[in-house]
């Protein structure tokens, strides 16, 4: 009876559940009744959090609900159900790329849980009017969904992604920003490129290639007879030079190689999302 009082209307079963992580004996001890009540609140906070994030995908669920996948700052990629997510009120808000404030709740931590969504800013209107921006938004959302594991925080990479998406529509600088973002994505996933020094000669200047095996820079002098097998290292990939479009396209070739042969290969040899190829295609059309 005491346990029921401590747990409120939810009953003893709720207390014994995973959220409590305490025994009924402890809870029923009169001296610890207050402690048990506090513990309920503390643990329920763990299954109820508020964060801001970038909406990645929306899938209809039942007649009116939607399952959304949000890239949040502190909780990483996290899915949840939005009740009424396909309604006229919420559908315009739940567009990929939208910046949202979310409140997630679940009874147990490993449940899918439900989201309450508040729009912060929409990026759809900016992207839909510009072919390159739309393709870029799709590429970012597609790669984040494809590459990042669920429920693991990537705080620094989240900030970079948010910054990149906020530049959407600025067609002159966006492709370069996207190239650097892909380089950061590789680094986040453990396939960072070492572009500071030549892997063969140890030189720090004249670096023009990247080894497709190690991801390390190679100078023109050190390339030797392997030159045909090496990937291009345009100065813009190292954050140098004026970054003309031809160089950016060469940079995409290099980052694309590692995304395909390292990242995608690790993920059970799944092919890279087609959205990246469409963005590269849209970009190379303007060359």
């Amino acid at each position: 009876m005491i346990a029921t009082i401590a747990a409120g209307k939810r009953g003893v079963g709720y207390l014994v559940g995973a959220c409590m992580r305490r025994t009924v004996e402890q809870v029923t001890s009169p001296g610890k009744r207050h402690l048990a009540t506090r513990r309920i609140h503390a643990d329920s906070r763990a299954m109820e959090w508020t964060d801001h994030g970038i909406l990645l995908t929306v899938r209809p669920h039942g007649e009116t609900a939607a399952i959304i996948d949000v890239f949040t700052e502190d909780h990483g990629r996290h899915s949840g159900i939005v009740r009424g997510g396909t309604s006229r009120k919420l559908a315009p808000v739940l567009q990929p790329g939208a910046q949202v404030q979310v409140e997630w709740r679940a009874r147990l931590e490993d449940h899918l849980g439900t989201y309450q969504v508040e729009p912060v800013r929409s990026r759809a209107a900016v992207a839909m009017g510009d072919r390159l921006a739309l393709a870029g938004l799709n590429a970012v959302v597609g790669l984040v969904s494809f590459c990042l594991p669920e429920r693991q925080a990537h705080v620094v990479f989240y900030t970079r992604t948010e910054r990149l998406l906020d530049l959407l529509g600025q067609t002159e600088i966006w492709p370069l920003a996207y190239l650097h973002w892909e380089r950061d994505l590789l680094e986040e996933l453990g396939y960072g490129l070492d572009l500071s020094v030549c892997a063969v000669t140890g030189q720090t200047d004249g670096l023009t290639y990247v080894s497709p095996r190690t991801g390390r820079a190679v100078s023109a002098k050190g390339a030797g007879e392997w030159v045909d097998r090496l990937l291009p290292l345009p100065p813009c990939l190292r954050g140098e030079g004026t970054a003309p479009d031809v160089e950016i396209a060469a940079g995409f070739q290099t980052t694309g190689h590692f995304l395909e042969h390292r990242v995608a290969a690790e993920l059970a040899h799944k092919p890279l999302p087609e959205v990246r190829a469409r963005f590269i295609d849209a970009f190379t059309r303007r060359l």
Binding site: R121, S122, R123, A124, A125, M128, G129
Partner: peptide, 22 residues
């Protein structure tokens, strides 16, 4: 794309307002 017939700006989402202004 823009303001629907009978729509009030106060109730529109910012994406629709952006598209309508453009």
């Amino acid at each position: 794309q823009g303001v629907p017939i009978g729509g009030e700006l106060d109730y529109l989402d910012d994406g629709t307002i952006t598209a309508a202004l453009r």
